[in-house]
């Protein structure tokens, strides 16, 4: 459960308080809402390392693609995201 997965930020939602800064992150096409408060400098198009719904760090594109490729090869991406419902599903 300690794994962090890289994904690309596709949209950042405006928020008044940094602590609530969220965005849409795509993990190989699977979109999820992610909290971005720990990576204040992250912008749309950046790759971030995400763990339990929170982005922990910006990573470079090569690193992200390489890790995603490994996940894909091991067929583990769906497994890693299976417990991560899209926000709408929670509503």
């Amino acid at each position: 459960m300690c794994l962090a997965i890289p994904g690309i930020i596709t949209k950042i939602e405006p928020s008044e308080d940094e602590i609530f800064r969220t965005g849409k992150v795509s993990f190989d096409g699977i979109q999820r809402e992610v909290n971005l408060s720990m990576v204040p400098e992250a912008r749309e198009g950046d790759y971030v390392l995400v763990h339990v719904g929170v982005a922990l760090q910006i990573v470079d594109e090569e690193e992200a693609k390489q890790t995603l490729a490994c996940f894909r090869e091991l067929d583990e991406l769906n497994e890693a995201l299976k417990d991560h419902p899209d926000q709408e599903e929670l509503e």
Binding site: M1, C2, A4, N35, H51, V52, G53, V54, L56, D83, H84, P85, Q87, L90
Partner: peptide, 29 residues
């Protein structure tokens, strides 16, 4: 839940209940 923030969302939706998140983990979490 996948994230403690999901538990928080459940708390906002269920004001009549108390939501406890069992928070385990290492430094990553």
């Amino acid at each position: 839940v996948y994230s403690p923030l999901d538990a928080l969302a459940i708390a906002r939706k269920n004001p009549e209940k108390h939501i406890v998140f069992f928070a385990v983990g290492f430094e990553t979490t």
